[in-house]
Design a protein around this nucleic acid. Structure first.
Lengths: 147, 147
DNA sequence: TGTATTTATGTCGTGTACGACATAAAATTA
DNA sequence: TAATTTTATGTCGTACACGACATAAATACA
């Protein structure tokens, strides 16, 4: 039997896993300035598009379970970025709202993706390749998330 | 100021992060049969290529810190897949060896990548696209890991 | 040779991830 | 309407992931 497919270099899963952690690490020094983590940054991106939003809808957008999102949001509430509010008409729901502090953070954070993309100038990574990568991954996520 | 780049759908980091977790989740039911996790599976792949190998070299191949790998290996030792052995000439080093149980697992695990790829037949994901994705990610990892 | 530096591994604390399960409120259905 | 099911959120336990730091052995070098 040929075990060639088992080599780490042949795997498809491994480079996705490694790239994910490496990209997060690129963000980290920039996010550290505001005391937020990478998943918390994603929550803020979502809230800057939709405010307020239910816990469940945040989890769906991030493709995470609510039991991961709940403690994450609690930490963000402690730090003053968001506040939670029970829905009066449906008592099961909890609305997540941006605080003023959370709203004010947007222009600061907006500089980061730009900064990282500019950092690629002169590197071997081409912008076109990145966008192609993103679209291919979206197709894969689409196929894997709904089955 | 245009905040379009801040949309979740425009991010490059997010699909990598989400795809990583979704792919791991594809492996999980197959790995569960043997009681191993996805990172533990990666350690086994490495050991099936190089046995024995030092803790540090496993960490380098996985692009992880040793303080992540150490407890992971301890769990694998408890489960009987590997054993650790102090190097006599250099007392700092610890060699990680496959046990017979770990060696015997290889043909069982070998079926998994094949099984997952076959599962894509008829889906919207094309094999060619996957291999292209892998190579693009390798290029990105290369650029990010060594700077 | 003695001191400083590097290397290899590991401990500790914090923050995700997620399966299994709990709870309460809303919606469905017998 | 009463019982059942679904939905929304959350608790708990286990396993990563990583920064900061600790320790001991090997190496470099004054």
């Amino acid at each position: 039997m040929d075990y060639d497919q088992l080599k780490l270099s042949k795997q498809i899963c491994f480079p996705v896993y490694a790239a994910s952690r490496l990209i997060t690490k690129e963000y980290q020094p920039h996010l550290d300035r505001f005391g937020i983590t990478y998943p918390q940054y994603l929550v803020l991106l979502i809230l800057w598009e939709t405010n307020p939003i239910a816990v469940n809808d945040i989890a769906k957008k991030m493709i995470l379970n609510t039991n991961t999102v709940t403690p994450l949001l609690k930490r963000m509430e402690t730090q003053g970025w968001i506040r939670r509010e029970k829905n009066s008409s449906d008592e099961r729901k909890v609305w997540i709202h941006l605080t003023q502090q959370g709203i004010d953070l947007k222009p600061e954070i907006a500089k980061i993706p730009e900064l990282l993309l500019n950092g690629l100038e002169g590197s071997s990574i081409k912008l076109e390749a990145l966008f192609q990568l993103r679209d291919q991954l979206h197709a894969m996520i689409e196929a894997l998330a709904h089955k």
